[in-house]
Simulated scan of single mutants.
Amino acid sequence: MLWPFNHFRKPRTPLRGTIEAIYGMIVTQAREPSFYRDLAVPDTVNGRFDLLLLHLWLVLRRLRSVEGGGALSQGLFDHFCNDMDDNLREMGVSDLKVPKRMQAFGEAFYGRTAAYDMALTEGQEALAQAICKNIMNGENLEKARRVAAYAEAAMIALDGIDEAALISGSARFPVPEKVQP
C-alpha cells in the first residue's frame, strides 16, 4: 500500500532523480493541450488533477512489473504528495487546511485507482464510465470513451517499453487525439 506519510520517516532515496524524471513525464502528459481541446477534459484545477491521477495510475500500474518497482512506486507517490502540498501552499491554502486537503487528495487517489482497477476487469465501457464520472464530471460519455481508449493504448505502450526507458522518464505516452475507441 502506498502510504502518504512515509517521507517523514524514511531517509532521502537515491532514486530521487529517477522519481523526478518519471513524475515529470506524467505531469507533461497530463498537461497535453489536446486532452482539454479535443477530448473535452475540463480545463480546471479539478480536471487537471484528475488527469494527473489517471497518468499516475497508469505508471504505477506498469511499475508493478519492474524490479524495485515497489520502492519506485512509493517514491513516486511521495513525490506526488509533496507536489500537491506545495501546490496548495502556492495557492494560498492555510497551514491548518492543508492536511484536510491532502487527505481529500489521498481519498481521491485511492478511490479513482480502485475504480479504474475494477473497470479494467469489466472492459473498456466500464473504464469509460469511470473516466466519465471521475474526470468528465459525469458528462460527455462519448469523449470519455475516447479517453478510455487512450488509457488502454497508454497501458499497452507502457507495457511494451523496456524498464530503462520507463525509469529514465523518457517513455512516451500515445498522442491523445490520434487514439480512437
Rank of each mutant, 00 (worst) to 15 (best):
S65N: 13
D50P: 06
L88E: 08
N46E: 13
P42G: 11
E67H: 10
G69N: 07
P42K: 11
Q74I: 04
V59E: 02
T44A: 06
R61F: 07
G75P: 08
E67T: 13
H55V: 06
H79R: 15
L58E: 04
M91G: 09
F77M: 02
L76S: 02
L52R: 03
L52M: 09
M84Q: 15
P42W: 12
H55F: 03
H79E: 06
T44C: 06
G47S: 03
R62L: 11
L52D: 00
G75Q: 06
G70W: 10
T44F: 07
R64D: 11
D43V: 07
D86L: 15
G69W: 01
C81Y: 14
L53F: 00
N87Y: 14
R62W: 12
L76W: 09
R48K: 13
N82C: 14
V45K: 08
V45Y: 05
L53N: 04
L53D: 00
L63Y: 00
D83C: 05
R61I: 07
R48G: 06
Q74G: 05
R64S: 10
M91C: 09
L51T: 02
N46Q: 13
G75N: 04
R89L: 14
S65D: 14
S65T: 15
R48W: 02
L58D: 01
G69F: 00
R64H: 12
R48Q: 10
D83Y: 14
D85Y: 15
R48M: 08
L63P: 07
V59F: 00
L53I: 08
L56Y: 04
W57E: 04
M91K: 15
L53T: 02
H79V: 01
D78H: 06
D86C: 10
D83S: 13
F77A: 03
S65H: 15
D83H: 14
L63M: 07
L72Q: 01
P42S: 10
R64G: 02
T44I: 06
R89Q: 15
D50E: 15
L76T: 08
R61W: 10
V66T: 12
F80C: 05
L58S: 10
D83R: 14
M84V: 15
G47V: 02
N87T: 15
R62N: 11
N46G: 06
R89E: 12
D78Q: 12
A71L: 11
L53H: 00
F80G: 00
L53K: 00
V59H: 02
N46V: 12
V59S: 04
D50L: 07
G47Y: 01
L72A: 08
N82P: 02
R61N: 12
R62A: 13
D43K: 14
R61C: 04
